[in-house]
């Protein structure tokens, strides 16, 4: 990872939030948007610039599921496992996705094409079980619909 570029990106994002460490979540979110995950070098640069212990930044970055410290796939497949989706069979959908992609939830395929994740209720319960690929919502999912859904995105 190019050190100069990291410094530049971090500086730009920190400026956006006035170097205010109370806005750490937004800061990390914006940085994750750039890299699709939070590289170690980025967290170190944030800690150094804000003069915060790295241990603190690391805690925040690992505390929220929305952050990933490992590279994520080109496509992020999220299965809602909130109560409503759960009751409607989200786990069977998740299982099928796991099989098709060959990875458990929370992991990324070796070719960096897909990351599989679970999320909590996203407020679209009527559509459950819900799967979100990148930013697109797929409602009323069933295990049998999983294969064709993934094929749409696979390269």
């Amino acid at each position: 990872m190019a050190v100069e570029k990291v410094k530049e990106n971090v500086k730009e994002v920190l400026e956006r939030y006035g170097y205010n460490s109370a806005r750490m979540i937004e800061i990390l979110q914006d940085l994750q948007d750039i890299y699709s995950y939070l590289p170690k070098e980025v967290l170190e640069e944030v800690a150094n610039t804000l003069e915060l212990p790295l241990a603190r930044v690391y805690h925040i970055a690992t505390f929220f599921r929305a952050f990933s410290l490992l590279p994520r796939g080109k496509h992020v497949v999220q299965v809602c496992t909130g109560t409503a989706c759960h009751v409607k069979g989200a786990y069977r959908v998740l299982e099928r996705l796991s099989d098709v992609l060959g990875i458990p939830a929370g992991k990324t395929t070796k070719d960096l094409q897909f990351t599989l994740e679970t999320v909590n209720c996203v407020g679209a319960c009527a559509l459950g079980p819900l799967v979100i690929v990148d930013d697109k919502y797929y409602g009323h999912m069933t295990p049998s619909k999983v294969d064709s859904l993934i094929e749409e995105y696979r390269e």
Binding site: L54, A55, R56, V57, Y58, H59
Partner: peptide
């Protein structure tokens, strides 16, 4: 020194140096 901290939350929560690497 702030060398140690927490990682994750819930059942996965643990105490480590950042990245669980020598700090």
């Amino acid at each position: 020194r702030h060398a140690l901290g927490y990682e994750s939350r819930g059942p996965e929560r643990r105490v480590v140096p950042p990245f669980d690497e020598p700090n």
